[in-house]
Structures are given as C-alpha cells and as structure tokens.
C-alpha cells in the first residue's frame, strides 16, 4: 500500500477540522516521533506508534465523516501488510462506536476530566484547602509567569531532570500519550513557569483543545522536589485566571487510565474480563500508573465533565496488545 507522508501542518489541520469525536487530547497527534498514516485521496489522518507486533493508534481517525471509515479500513490493511495488529487507545466514545462496528472489542480504559471555565470558581468551603495551599506557595515567594518556552528551555530541562530523578533509578519519561515541550508544535502551546527567588521551581505546559469544548489542556506538569506545597496548584490557578480572562471555554486535565470506570460507559461486546482488570488496576495498579494520585489532583479543581475513554482491540481483548500501549508510551 502506498502511504503518503504528512507534515506537521497537515496533521494540525486534520485535528483542528475533524473534531467530531471531541477528543480533548487530540493535540498529542502532533507529538514528535508519532507516525502518521494518510492517503492522498482521503481527508484525514491516523496517528500511531509501532511497538512489537502492534500498531498502537492514538485516538480514532481524525478524518472527514465521508472518509473516516475508508481511512480506518486502509489503516487496518496497512497493519495487516506488516503482520501487525492494531490496538487503539484514548478513543472518545464517538470513535469507540466506529471500532465496535468494525469488529473490535472495545472497553472503557479510563476517563478525562474538564472544567468549564465559565462556571469555574475557587470560592466557597469546597476549595478552602486548595486556596490555602496556593496562598502558602505565594507566601513562600513563588512568582508565576507565562513565558516563552524557547527562552526558558534550560529551566525546563533542569526541572525535567530533577523531576525524573525523583521517580527512581529506572524511571523513564512517558511519551506518545503525554505532551511534549519544544519542537515545531511549541508555537501552539503555552508554558507557565513558577520561580522562587529567580530559580525555576515548576512548570505546566498547556496544549490547545479544539471542538465543542475548546480551550486548553493541562499537559506536562513538573516541579523540583522539595519545594513548598502548592506550587503546581498556584501555577494552574494563574493559568486559569489568564485563560478565563481571554474567554477560553474549557480547561481539560486530560486522560487518566483506570479512572471514572462505569458500566454505563461500556459498549456492546465489551470484555467483562478486561473490565474487571481495569477495576483491578484502579485498586492495585500503582506500579503500572499512579492513577489515584493523578485523579486526586484533577478532582481538586472540581471538574464539570468526565469523559470516558476507550481501548479498542482488533479481534478479542488482549493483554499483549494492552501491554504494548504502555510499551509505545515508553513505560517499559
């Protein structure tokens, strides 16, 4: 099969125009090292990484309605020619239903969380602890600014290195399903940096979100170990104020695996066994992914919307395919 090449602008154009799935993480499609499958006669793109015998697809096809089924069909053919199996991850429900129709076994794998900025407030007793935490960090001298990522590349690198050092000797930074800083796509992202006495202490990178819940996604967030509590919360609160003042609609917190699991989100043909396994990993899967810690941070902001996300197995549910999602994400 002839596979056309797609440049960054074409992929960005695809995720901006083809927002039927309202995938809040769609911007991850422009990550460096993510492969793109496009066809010259079809309007859209499939984004994936090869890992072992699998093509791990991120989201569904970002494609025109008229072309999305044919694009998926050709992508499956492309995988078959390589003797590889497709496993899709972070599918929004709209895409998950398409995969069910095409013989995939589809299960909920987690959820993503979003705050409606028009409704957002930190007033009231519910947010008292969060407000106190933020105040303490500012009292400790924290200054938060939106900065140019290129000019602050060294600060980001220093924080990244220190942050990774806290994760253990064999820790590796996740890729593919998390955002990046720098590179071509940085011009579309925003970086908020927290510093104390001039020393960079932590940062949060935000990626654009398109579709009916357009706004920003709270993406990479890292900080130096040992700083005062509340640094990340103060950075995010500052960013929220700025986004709200600009009229942005939503702040997304992105996907957290193993969270928000509910029978009502499952689709026909789902695997009961895999469903059980997701609940098991929510209870005991800290070694695979720190879902509880991640969810705890997101819930502090009282998200207004919880969106289920899905994994789609070509054929039957398969632990090998699921493990390769993590392999593609550099988790092991």
């Amino acid at each position: 099969m002839t596979v056309a090449t797609a440049n960054n602008d074409q992929i960005l154009d695809a995720i901006r125009r083809h927002t039927q799935a309202d995938n809040p993480s769609a911007f991850l499609a422009v990550n460096e090292e993510t492969s793109r499958f496009v066809q010259p006669d079809l309007d859209g793109a499939v984004c994936y990484r090869a890992a072992g015998g699998f093509l791990v697809q991120f989201g569904g096809p970002f494609a025109a309605d008229a072309d999305r089924v044919e694009l998926l069909r050709r992508f499956l053919e492309f995988a078959r020619e390589q003797d590889r199996t497709v496993v899709g991850v972070q599918l929004a429900r709209y895409d998950a239903e398409l995969y069910v129709e095409h013989g995939f076994t589809v299960n909920q794998v987690g959820a993503s969380y979003a705050v409606d900025l028009a409704e957002h407030t930190l007033r009231g007793t519910r947010f008292m602890q969060l407000r106190n935490k933020i105040s303490r960090s500012f009292r400790a001298g924290l200054v938060v600014e939106e900065v140019d990522a290129t000019e602050h590349r060294d600060a980001v690198a220093e924080i990244d290195a220190a942050w990774l050092g806290t994760k253990g000797e064999h820790a590796r930074p996740l890729e593919f399903l998390v955002g990046q800083t720098g590179g071509w796509a940085q011009q579309h992202r925003r970086l908020f940096l927290g510093s104390i006495e001039g020393r960079p202490t932590g940062y949060i990178s935000y990626s654009p979100v398109y579709g009916t819940r357009a706004g920003w996604m709270h993406d990479l967030s890292r900080r130096l170990p040992g700083g005062p509590p509340g640094v990340m919360e103060a950075i995010n609160a500052t960013a929220i104020e700025k986004f709200s003042a600009e009229g942005a609609g939503w702040l997304h917190f992105g996907f957290t695996p193993f969270t928000g699991l509910a029978e009502e989100h499952e689709l026909p043909g789902r695997s009961s066994a895999f469903q059980w396994f997701m609940h098991h990993l929510w209870e005991h899967g800290e070694a695979v992914y720190p879902a509880r810690t991640q969810l705890s941070y997101k819930e502090k902001w009282a998200p207004h919307t919880v969106l289920p996300e899905y994994v789609a197995f070509q054929g039957s549910a398969d632990l090998g395919a699921f493990a390769h999602v993590f392999r593609a994400a550099n988790a092991f």
Partner: peptide
C-alpha cells in the same frame, strides 16, 4: 499481564494475553 511487561517479545507470554481474558470472560 505482568509477565508480558517483563518479556514483551516472548511469543509464549503474548499467546497467553488473549487466552486468559477469554477464559475469564
């Protein structure tokens, strides 16, 4: 699952990945 993570290219480990889920299903 954890066996596959330890040896993701081991055909024997991979072969069990769909089978054990089917049995539990």
């Amino acid at each position: 699952f954890f066996g596959i993570i330890q040896a993701p290219d081991d055909p024997e480990a991979l072969a069990g990945g769909a089978r054990v889920l089917a049995e539990l299903d």
